[in-house]
Amino acid sequence: MSTDPVRTTVVGERATSAPSALAAIGVAKSYGALSVLADLDFSVGPGEVLAVLGPSGCGKSTLLRVLAGLEPPDRGRVEIGGQPVRGPSPDRPMVVQGATLFPWLSLRANLEWGPKALGNQQSGAIVDELLEATGLSGSADLLPRQLSGGMRQRAAIAQVLANQPPLLLLDEPFGALDAQTRLRMQEWLIGLLAERPTATVLVTHDVEEALLLGHRLLRLSHRPATVLEELALDLPSPRGRSTLSDSRFVQLKADVLARVLDA
């Protein structure tokens, strides 16, 4: 089920013991003569957060679009629970940087969109719970533009979680926020994913974010993207702002950063 990583520096327990929620097998993608992804192999276990770290413009966003089924790979395939991906599905929603909320709908209506589209009768209860978990209960009747950037980003993640997907795809979800807000969002996401374990692929160019949120790290090369390194991140939990000063975290961050800069 799970595929062998190209190069494994440290073999994480999650990577080997659990059946994979998602498997990318020899995925390649190019736009005309521009090769963006070159034979990527990796997998994500159920409830595992895979942080994909790569330089800007290396094809991380393309990778997520392929995983989401928004674009087909040229070669190779993506499997979710053993089934090949064909087209987008509420089972693996993607949240990108900047709001993806529907600007003409209230926050509550935005969160109810998914459950209603799938004919889920209990949308009200799910949405209430998510509003609570995102600290947005008091803003449920506001329009997206009346929310702050951080609130919008939390809402966008809550919106796709309302369908209770087994897999979540995050494309630099906090990239547009200021440093303090970003740290709060990261802590919030850590708590949220701890409460409702959801296999997650988090794409980022921020080493700190990758190490803080990821259970496992996948470091990609410049374009065309290949896997340079795969690393289990067994830092003590719960992670949060205190993790940033943890000596192992500091050492790891310095090591990874050095390899990123040398790459």
């Binding site: 599905s89 929603p93 993607m94 369908n163």
Partner: peptide
């Protein structure tokens, strides 16, 4: 992005014109 989001939330393609 709005269209992609709607599709990823489970909106049927034939409903996209009316709903998005």
């Amino acid at each position: 992005q709005l269209v992609d989001t709607a599709r990823m939330l489970g909106t049927r393609p034939r409903d996209l014109a009316r709903r998005v």
